[in-house]
């Protein structure tokens, strides 16, 4: 019988490594393109509505998630993700895809237990860590300001 260590060696020799350079490149292109589209949308909101550079990000994000909904629903987001990797997962559209795909998937168990209960199956951890880290960072900063170490 072979031991685990020897097998791990053999296995890693044969299993192809992820093509790192190619993956980084496609992630850059895909992520960059999504942000570029986002910038286009935000310029649209700035030009035709009363949004500034700062405030335009809200409708921009919502619009991008709407686009992600269509792409997810028509089965296209998966293909973009296979090509782009992190390039499609890291932008907010990836967050949208995680929520939307789970919602579509669990529709068969009903709206309350299925959609409601499973919507944040994948994306819930992002919200948890976002809120928790926001709290901790704000708390530390407040303490530091109180002790006069830094200012706002």
């Amino acid at each position: 019988m072979m031991d685990e260590k020897k097998y791990a060696e053999l296995e890693s020799k044969i299993s192809p490594k992820p093509p790192l350079i190619r993956n980084l490149f496609t992630a850059f292109i895909t992520g960059g393109t999504i942000c570029l589209i986002g910038q286009g949308i935000s310029v649209f909101y700035m030009t035709y509505f009363d949004f500034t550079e700062r405030t335009a990000s809200n409708p921009t994000v919502a619009t991008l998630i709407f686009i992600a909904m269509l792409l997810t629903g028509f089965g296209q987001y998966r293909k973009i993700a296979q090509f782009g990797g992190a390039g499609s997962a890291v932008p907010i559209t990836g967050f949208g895809n995680a929520v939307i795909s789970a919602a579509i998937e669990h529709r068969s168990e009903g709206y309350v237990l299925g959609v409601g209960g499973n919507m944040f199956k994948l994306a819930g951890s992002v919200i948890l860590f976002g809120v928790a880290s926001a709290f901790i960072v704000a708390l530390i900063k407040t303490i530091l300001v109180k002790f006069g170490v830094v200012s706002w």
Binding site: M46, T47, F51, T52, E53, R54, A56
Partner: peptide
């Protein structure tokens, strides 16, 4: 005597 507002925001410029 003036109230000054300076913005580098492209919307404000526009």
């Amino acid at each position: 005597d003036f109230k000054v507002t300076v913005s580098a925001d492209s919307k404000i410029i526009q």
